[in-house]
Design a protein around this nucleic acid. Structure first.
Lengths: 167, 167
DNA sequence: TGCTTACTCTATTAAATCGATAGGATAATA
DNA sequence: TATTATCCTATCGATTTAATAGAGTAAGCA
C-alpha cells in the first residue's frame, strides 16, 4: 500500500520512539506533565528568585523562560485566582508571589495546575472516583499498584516547596 | 450568551471537577494511566492467577475483567510481541504467561504498555530527550523536581513484580 | 481628563491521541 | 476439510492540548 498525504509525511518526518525494553513503537513521546504545569512551575520559580516582591510583567517572564506569552497569561491568571499569585494592573504592574516560597508546597501547585496527583481516579485523595469496570477495589491489582505510586509521588511533592526549586 | 448544541449538552450533563485546594475547574478527569495499561495489567494478573500454564482465550479474559474484547486483542498482541506472553492458535488456544510472575518486574510491563515512566522526557532513562525550551537542565526547576518523582516511582515499579499484584 | 500600560476574559483553532470497532487473513486442531 | 481462535490493518468519533486573536478593564501618570 502506498502512503499518501499526511501519512507519508509522518512516516518520513515524525519521530517514532522505540521502547528499548522490547521493541515496542510509540508514535509520540507520552508526556505526563502538561506544558501548562511545566510553564507554571518555571514562572513560579522565576518569581521566587526575584529580589523583593516587585511585580514582574508577563512579557518579561515569557521572554526569560521561552514561553508563549498568551499561553502564559492564562496560566498566571489561574495561579492568581487560586491565591498563589497576586497581580497589579497598569504601569509598573505584573505578577508577584503573595506568600513566602517556603510556604508554597508542591502538592498545592500540582493540584492547581495539573489536577489529580494519582494516576487513576480510584486512588486519588482529592479527585476520587470509583472505576466503572472494577467491582472490588480491595482485590484490584491496578488499585494496589497505583496506591503505592501515589504515596511515593505524594511524598516527593510534600517534601518540596517552591523555595526548594530555586537554584 | 446562550449555550447551544454540544456546549449546552456538556454544560448540563458533563462532569466538571473542582479542585478542592483552590476551586479550579477541570473539565475532565485527568488520567495519567491509559486504559491500555490498566487493561493490560488486569489481564496479566488474571493470567498469573490461573492454575498452570493453560492458554486462556481472549474472550474469557475480556468477560472476566469487563474489557472490550477487540481492544484487549491488540493489548495482548503487544504483550506477546514483547515476550511477556505466549499464544496458541486454533481450538484450545489462547494466551499464557511465558515466565514466572515473580520474574516479571513492573518496570518492564509499564514501559512496554505505557512508555516512559518519567513525567518529562528530559528525566527519562529509556526515552530521554532534551527539552527545546530549556537551555540548562542542571538549573531547571522542573527537571530537579521531576527527577525526584521519577526515582520514587521507579522504586515502586522495581519493588513490584506481577506476582505481587495477584490477590 | 485623557493617554498609556498591562492584566482580564471569551472564543476559536489545528493537531494529535485515545479508545473502540470492523473485517478479513492466518494458523492450528479435530 | 470445517471449526476455532489468534493475527493484523484500517478506520472512526470524541476529546484534549497548546496556542492565538481580539476586545474589555483597571491602574498610573501627565
Amino acid at each position: 500500500m502506498l502512503l499518501t498525504g499526511l501519512k507519508l509525511f509522518r512516516a518520513c518526518f515524525c519521530k517514532i520512539l522505540v521502547c528499548p525494553i522490547a521493541n515496542v513503537n510509540f508514535p509520540y513521546l507520552r508526556c505526563m506533565l502538561s506544558k501548562k504545569t511545566k510553564y507554571g512551575l518555571k514562572a513560579l520559580t522565576f518569581l521566587a528568585s526575584q529580589e523583593g516582591r516587585v511585580p514582574v510583567q508577563i512579557s518579561e517572564i515569557a521572554k526569560h523562560e521561552n514561553i508563549s506569552q498568551k499561553f502564559l497569561e492564562s496560566i498566571l491568571l489561574t495561579l492568581r485566582k487560586t491565591g498563589i499569585l497576586g497581580s497589579k494592573k497598569g504601569k509598573g504592574g505584573g505578577y508577584y508571589l503573595i506568600k513566602d516560597p517556603k510556604d508554597i508546597p508542591m502538592t498545592t501547585v500540582m493540584r492547581v495546575l495539573e489536577g489529580p496527583i494519582a494516576m487513576v481516579p480510584c486512588v486519588s485523595l482529592n479527585f476520587y472516583e470509583k472505576c466503572g469496570d472494577c467491582p472490588d477495589e480491595a482485590s484490584c491489582s491496578v488499585h494496589k499498584l497505583m496506591l503505592q505510586v501515589r504515596d511515593s509521588t505524594l511524598e516527593v511533592f510534600r517534601n518540596n516547596t517552591l523555595a526548594d526549586l530555586v537554584p
